[in-house]
Amino acid sequence: MDLTVVVVLVIALALFFDFTNGFHDTANAMATPIATGALKPKVAVALAAVLNLVGAFLSTEVAKTISGGLIKEGDGGVQILPEMIFAGLIGAIVWNLLTWLFGLPSSSSHALFGGLIGAAVVGAGFGVVDYSVLVSKVILPALVAPLVAGLVAFVATRLAYAITRMPSDSTQSGVRGRFRYGQIFSSSLVALAHGTNDAQKTMGVITLTLIASGLQPTGSGPEFWVIITCALAIALGTYMGGWRIIRTLGAGLTEVKPAQGFAAETSTAATILASSHLGFALSTTQVASGSVIGSGLGRKGASVRWRTAGRIGLGWLMTLPASAIVGALAALVVGIGPVGLVIDLVAGVAVIVTIFVISRRNNVDSKNALSEVDAATIAVRTPKATRRKRKAVK
């Protein structure tokens, strides 16, 4: 198959992944402000879309990690073919949409990394992956960042409640309720941070494709047109597709208070922005979930539902290897030749269409459309939930 056709297909598929990333992760930024009434749903999603667009232009360090770090470059450039990158994207998109459909806690970012690594290993062997970059820029940040964000959110929540401590409950409630207005700023900061980190991953994939096909010099960063198209794709996905997740916000987030939401969002944004500057390819889902759990624990009398938190963690751990397996299978099919590429394309489109058809037929409820951040909130047993449980036992 003509190289130009393959490159165009890869770019189109990468932009579609960027779109799915947008609607998959909308709730990361806007879950808590909608739950506390700080923003109306339509306004929140539109604001997130605009700030995702803006954030994509602020840095390209994460894109360089993917285009020039994760996959090794040899004397002749990147050691994998565009066809393998195509297969990796198939793995990422399929896993991303499956987890969206069934409400499984997952990371769009790790789905992308897993798909690319699985396909690269099949196409060029285990030596093609730079494991030092994988560990230092992907795995370690994935383990450390949620803990750091959670700790910061915990401390911030404790400070917020301490500063606003009043003798009168009604006065106390009114003062803390003003954090709702601060959430407009903090949630906007999260949306901006999401654009600086997640949109860049697709920029990196497209740049990697152009380098692998000889259309761009080895070691170079994303072209301006790549930045623009990726920014538009993630912004459009954020605006168009987040409703399936956002409709479930009332279930798990009803006990999130404005002070908690403000603390969680601020710590999430700070962690992601700092990591983007350093080139760490974070999962915004994991960071936001860590912040929500930390802020929940910051409320006096709260405790962790460890079983629920364990299920969330298991979903995170599954994503990278599962998408790597799907990417590897797609790469094996691509190895057949041009016919394999067509088979992958047809099969991928069929799976995508099937998932969307099923999503329209099934009712949205807490079992099949629970957002990752929403799931994190129910991993914390708040004082109100504890009192309800005690009454039920009595």
Results as ranks from 00 to 15, higher is better:
residue 29 A to P: 10
residue 31 A to K: 07
residue 31 A to W: 07
residue 32 T to R: 03
residue 32 T to Y: 04
residue 34 I to L: 06
residue 37 G to M: 08
residue 39 L to I: 15
residue 39 L to E: 13
residue 42 K to Q: 11
residue 42 K to W: 11
residue 44 A to E: 06
residue 47 L to T: 14
residue 48 A to H: 00
residue 48 A to P: 01
residue 50 V to L: 14
residue 52 N to W: 11
residue 52 N to Y: 11
residue 53 L to N: 05
residue 53 L to R: 02
residue 54 V to Y: 08
residue 54 V to N: 08
residue 55 G to P: 02
residue 57 F to V: 07
residue 58 L to K: 12
residue 59 S to N: 15
residue 60 T to L: 07
residue 61 E to F: 06
residue 62 V to C: 08
residue 62 V to N: 09
residue 63 A to R: 10
residue 64 K to R: 14
residue 64 K to T: 11
residue 65 T to P: 05
residue 66 I to G: 03
residue 66 I to L: 15
residue 67 S to H: 07
residue 68 G to H: 09
residue 71 I to W: 02
residue 71 I to S: 03
residue 72 K to S: 11
residue 74 G to V: 04
residue 75 D to P: 09
residue 77 G to T: 04
residue 80 I to G: 00
residue 83 E to L: 14
residue 84 M to S: 15
residue 88 G to K: 00
residue 90 I to W: 09
residue 91 G to K: 05
residue 91 G to S: 07
residue 94 V to H: 06
residue 94 V to E: 01
residue 94 V to P: 07
residue 96 N to Y: 02
residue 97 L to I: 02
residue 97 L to W: 01
residue 98 L to Q: 00
residue 101 L to N: 05
residue 103 G to D: 10
residue 103 G to V: 08
residue 105 P to G: 11
residue 107 S to W: 09
residue 108 S to I: 15
residue 109 S to F: 10
residue 109 S to L: 05
residue 110 H to V: 08
residue 112 L to Y: 14
residue 113 F to R: 04
residue 115 G to P: 08
residue 117 I to T: 03
residue 117 I to S: 00
residue 118 G to M: 03
residue 119 A to G: 09
residue 121 V to M: 09
residue 122 V to S: 08
residue 122 V to G: 01
residue 122 V to E: 07
residue 123 G to N: 07
residue 123 G to L: 04
residue 125 G to R: 09
residue 127 G to D: 11
residue 131 Y to R: 06
residue 131 Y to G: 11
residue 131 Y to Q: 09
residue 132 S to I: 06
residue 132 S to Y: 00
residue 133 V to S: 01
residue 135 V to G: 00
